[in-house]
């Protein structure tokens, strides 16, 4: 029962993870490296959604894209970490309950 609840809770962000992975594999390489930040905007979005979920993560990602323009200084700009980490990640990037996959 708890597993089902967790699965449903994590489903929205895992759907976004799949979409972002597809974007990063297919669309991103079309125009090469352009982002002035590390990680790139899509990488940031991926981490943000993995860590904070669709709503908060999506908001963080939107703010980041707004920050990323030719006049920004750029540089290293990591997703704010959530302490303690509640979930683990699979190799693909799916968010799973802690203990599965590599933490």
């Amino acid at each position: 029962m708890k597993t089902v609840a967790t699965f449903l809770l994590l489903l929205p962000r895992n759907i976004i993870v799949v979409l972002l992975r597809i974007y990063r594999a297919v669309i991103s390489p079309l125009y090469g490296d352009v982002c002035r930040y590390y990680p790139s905007c899509s990488g940031y979005g991926l981490q943000a959604v993995q860590e904070h979920g669709v709503i908060v993560g999506g908001f963080l990602a939107a703010r980041r894209v707004a920050r990323c323009h030719p006049w920004a200084a750029g540089g290293i700009d990591d997703v704010p970490r959530r302490q303690p980490a509640r979930y683990g990640l699979t190799r693909f990037g799916f968010v799973v309950p802690a203990g599965h996959g590599k933490a």
Partner: peptide, 23 residues
């Protein structure tokens, strides 16, 4: 490596990337 490169760009103000805004 990307991390260090990006930090160098920022420190020296030489970021050659244009961001995705033009696109």
């Amino acid at each position: 490596m990307s991390r260090e490169t990006m930090a160098l760009y920022k420190k020296t103000g030489t970021n050659p990337l244009s961001s995705c805004l033009p696109l």
